[in-house]
Design a protein around this nucleic acid. Structure first.
Lengths: 201, 201
DNA sequence: CAAACCATTCGGTCCCGGTCGAAGTGTTCC
DNA sequence: GGAACACTTCGACCGGGACCGAATGGTTTG
């Protein structure tokens, strides 16, 4: 199923979490619209993609984390490497309203260490959050890291704070989050992260 | 590459970590020896399998953890499910000379918790191990769990102890380890594991 | 050495599936 | 309404690759 070059190209183009129209995917794969239509139908039938019609266009996106996992695993074997966008989304992305990815997992792990003062330093008001209807703290298992990261009201408050400070900025129509230089130094300081933790030095 | 049913069947048959001869793999896939030979050659060329000639037979096994990961990820999508042997090896197996898999990761995590007395209860002599040439403690990242488990002299000593007590027993010509009922209760007690942690209730 | 066995190479067949051109359906915009 | 656009269906073409039969080179056993 993923063996066909055209289908692989389409799935690869969707690895950043965005949704793309059939036309664009046809261009990505280098085939005509008819061929792309047939491929996309098969991919949807195989529960690998989901489609969403809006107007005269039909937008496709990955059906779930398993597909991304499989694609990642396959790219580890072959000589083909994932496009940059696919690697970036593994580092930092939003999962609904909170931070996920390698960064999300690492910050959660540091947050739980005894003696960590990041919450206080950030000025997060736990009392105010506790009074909200939604649970304060939930664990959400990350699909690339297979490890928990913080969700719930606290997770949402943290991500909102990160965005306010412009430590991370969201990418249009994608779950991807881009780390800014300011964010890199701030996270290093607050959470005591090793510089080698960040991608590309 | 893994899309072909015959090749998939062969790789699936190797998912338990054992090595099998070309003839057996041909039977597993339900094709003749010639066809199997062609498939196996392709899989080796694609760095998915490694072969080892012994006498007039040629034994094949998985080339690395990436292949197993890819196969697992793919099986999550499709309706095909992994054979029981492939699921068992994810729970407990030996990695060279120490315990790996879900059990290995869990025991390591418990071992590092403050206040854990398992090492003392087991009568592991850390001083004696420290005098050995090899490093006492090494971290080995698990390929199914993507989390560290204990290796080195301590890891080897622990696994040896588990085997002596017959809490786990090795399977012939495989990295698989089978948990015995005695092991289940012993691990539960020593490491304070939840009963739900173990497979099949 | 002969017989049995394992693996491989070669040649040939055959079918599946990717591909495109042409035509059809539905939507948007002027 | 008419033109432009996005997607789909149909039909036909064609190439790659899976498959097997027969034959070859090595290795083990008698």
């Amino acid at each position: 199923m993923l063996a066909d070059p055209s289908r692989a190209a389409m799935v690869l183009a969707l690895m950043d979490g965005r949704s793309r129209s059939a036309k664009k995917l046809a261009l990505d794969a280098g085939v005509t619209a008819q061929t792309a239509s047939a491929h996309l139908r098969k991919l949807v039938d195989a529960n690998m993609l989901v489609s969403q019609e809006r107007g005269r266009c039909k937008y496709f996106s990955l059906a779930g984390s398993e597909v991304a996992q499989a694609m990642e695993a396959l790219s580890e074997i072959g000589t083909h490497s994932l496009p940059p966008a696919a690697r970036e989304i593994r580092f930092a992305r939003c999962c609904y309203d909170h931070l996920a990815g390698r960064l999300g997992v690492a910050l959660t792990e540091r947050l739980l260490r005894p003696g960590n003062t990041a919450l206080r330093d950030l000025g997060i008001d736990l009392a105010a959050l506790e009074s909200a209807r939604r649970p304060l703290f939930r664990c959400c298992t990350d699909w690339t890291e297979r490890r928990p990261h913080v969700a719930g009201a606290l997770g949402a408050a943290l991500l909102a704070r990160y965005k306010d400070e412009r430590w991370v900025v969201a990418v249009e129509d994608s779950r991807k989050l881009v780390l800014t230089p300011a964010g890199k130094s701030a996270f290093s300081r607050l959470f005591n992260l090793d510089p080698a933790f960040f991608p590309q030095g």
